[in-house]
Design a protein around this nucleic acid. Sequence first.
DNA 1: GAGCACTGC
Length: 672
Amino acid sequence: MTDTDCFIPALHKPASLLPIARHKEALLYTIETFPVTVLIGQTGSGKTTQLPQYLEQGGWCNDGKLIAATQPRRVAATTVAKRVAEEMRCQLGQEVGYSIRFEDVTSASTRIKFLTDGLLLREALVDPLLSRYSVIMVDEAHERSLSSDMLLGVLKKIRKRRPELRIVVSSATLQAEDFLRFFVVDDAETAPSAAEPGGSIGRIISIEGRAFPVDIHYLTDSCDEYLERAVRTVFDIHASEPEGDILIFLTGREEIETAIEMIADRIPSLRNDADKLLPLPLYAGLTTEQQMYVFETAPENHRKLICATNIAEASVTIDGIAFVIDSGFVKLRAYNPVTAIETLTATPVSKASATQRAGRAGRTKAGKCYRLYTEAAFNKLEAATAPEIQRSNLAPTILQLKALGIDNIARFDFLTPPPAELIVRALELLYSLGALDEYAKLTVPLGIRMAELALGPMLAKCLLSAPTFGCLSEMLTIAAMTSLQGNIWFSHDSKKAEETARRKFAVEEGDHLTLLNVYQAFVTKGKKEAKWCQQHYLNFKSMSRAVSIRNQLRRYLERFGIDVSESLATNPTTASKAHDSQPLHERIRRCLTSGFFAHAARMQADGTFRTVDSGSLVLHAHPSSLMFNRKADWVVFTEVMETGEKTYVRDVSKIEKGWLVEYAPEYYRVRP
DNA sequence: GAGCACTGC
């Protein structure tokens, strides 16, 4: 079973009965007449599955062009494509196909193509006007992901060169005016009139959803212990409400596990003849198999109680939920441009989020939502969560925009402009990595190649400088291993067994060489087999993904004309002569320094680290790092994250202080 | 001796 199979929503309604069917003619007329259409449609309106079909029937593919429909998530792109292929009675990959990283299920006959927004941006690197497409639909634009915001900016630029292109922005909330205004403003030739805010550029079309009413309940007094309150609410609902499953929104894994324990503790106190409660966790860190339980129908006389993170707000839909309990919090990522460190902190949700969460109770019948905060507190919430582009490290974004030909970042049309400080910091980093020259132009070939690699800028720099260190094959592996999301190690009840397994691969100089060791063992001794992974407490899925990522990165390098002869680099004796004097392990650490010099730190007597930049910042080695209980002097790290009270570094390797000045003279010249 | 919400190339 693949990832996608378990997420197919049970929504098999005849297409003609969907709310959107009534709007078919109006939609086709608007899209024919205006370059930009903003489509407001709630979940269940059928916009994602039906509109591309209407457009195909309406002749938008007749000249051999394609209809693109972007999705923010891989699962959405694949499941929607499957559904539409079924409805059109064609084989997936023929008239209807999808394209996501590592999977291109399209062919010469494809007319409707579902793809992730990130991938469409990548296509624009090769085809800057996206000339293969007659219509581009950006779905779920209200989520304001980094890549959909970038895509909208790029589409606005393309539109001026391709007046015949049709853009459909689809959104579930009432921010439609913002999207339309974005495309209209600065368009001097056709200033909008008061009567028609979209002028001749665009129109808004609104489609009713298929939601049932949801009763909202607030607390009368605020509470500090929402976990306790949530548990009490569960038992109140269970005792007094009719059947229907319960969904609780919490912030993270730890909280979810605590809640489930608290509930399990109280289950024995239920009356014997009462219905049973079945508590289930749902968060991204679970394997897909573990996630599947929440989709299964509960046994008879059982009420499902799902404790979920934000994953249940938009990414995953569970049918049969009649009650939602909303803690009012979500963990959000933020980026501090001063320290260049990302933080992950529990933050109050926005009104839009709270509304979306409540709506999860009304998908199959009328429901109830219990908010664990007061109505006054709700009224004080932000209208919407700040878009990602305002709280992220923008170095990868700017690198990509530059590669798309957008040179003047300050003047680029962002839907919401990011803070200047974030832009400045990103430009500085890209300059010090050699991706930009002193005029902030992309360098050739380094900057352009860095933008094309599907890696962060620092890691991309390492990979591209690896040939000069004679460690390309090794750096390919390290890049693949460090850019994996998810754990390489299986968490195990026995911490000792886990630690012993880990120690077998440990390399004194640090985590990167250890990761290299793990990968090499996996492909040689382990023969890429699941059984071997199990014996060594390794996550087979993560390891297989590393193999895919490595292959893809290798293909990029080959396209750049960089020779990736594996035998050359894995055999130190045949490595380039210039490096004969240095052992392979040292060359790898030097290479890491050439990309991660901005992530250098020195270990203090107490075992914590200080960076060069911000002396007062205390960094702790993450307990999963080799450096957790080892001595070191200078190190570079590839990941840093602040959670709760402490700031942790993971993937840490020892370096020499002198290397910093050697590989980043500009960056370290005037510093102590 | 601790833990990372969620995406994406």
